[in-house]
Write a protein that binds this DNA or RNA. Sequence first.
DNA 1: GTTGAGCGTT
Length: 295
Amino acid sequence: MAEMYIRVAEEENEEPMEIPSEDDGTVLLSTVAAQFPGACGLRYRSPVSQCMRGVRLVDGILHAPENGWGNLVYVVNYPKDNKRKMDEIDASSATKIKRGDQKTSDLIVLGLPWKTSEQDLKDYFSTFGEVIMVQVKRDVKTGNSKGFGFVRFTEWESQGKVMSQRHMIDGRWCDCKLPNSKQGPDEPMRSRKVFVGRCTEDMTTDELRQFFMQYGEVTDVFIPKPFRAFAFVTFADDQVAASLCGEDLIIKGISVHISNAEPKHNNTRQMMERAGRFGNGFGVGGFGERVNESC
DNA sequence: GTTGAGCGTT
């Protein structure tokens, strides 16, 4: 069959575009979609009934009406017959991805000279962008640097640049990477409660409540006594809790890490208890029962 | 008072 084109338009009275058919007279949906992204089919106004008719579509192949394609103008069908909606879906998923990708996180700085201070770090990294947190990890007794620290930028671009190169800091080559606590997929969860790691002793329940209120209604704040450097925050909405998991948030200048409130352990007995609800669920000791309650 | 791959007082 000679090369043939059919006339296709976005709307019935718009200027049509000619779309090539295949050798057997059919038209591939993919060919239509190449010109009209998101297209899922074709329709046309029947010269006989004056009604809109759908074009037969089988396995991505559009089949001509009984009397051939003719000179009719075919109109593109979009999912739910609404192109604007498609655009909105695309836009929202795009921004969703964008948001997810552009969240900054703490970077671990490995290989620091013993003498490097937090001020040194801040001075150095500020050349890459606005720095909102630096830490040098030290021995609690001696105060000596452990030779590594953390840095957090405001801008995702700064973080990317810093991660992509080595750094000469006070005479040593240092590396900046995503810390282990951030690697790997964050496991999904349905809990309304989150674990807040790396709390400092001066953080009060009221302060934590005030801070986390910005994300949603807080129904409970629990800080273990004596001090254990972590806390639990429960939200009214599990989606709020889920959205915070994996994030590093800065409270009073301290970077805290939010994660699933389910304890991470590989204790067989506790795993059996959780999985099968063996025993009475109590007597795990410590705060275990608090972790599981209301989850 | 030392050191030089790692991972932040769960």
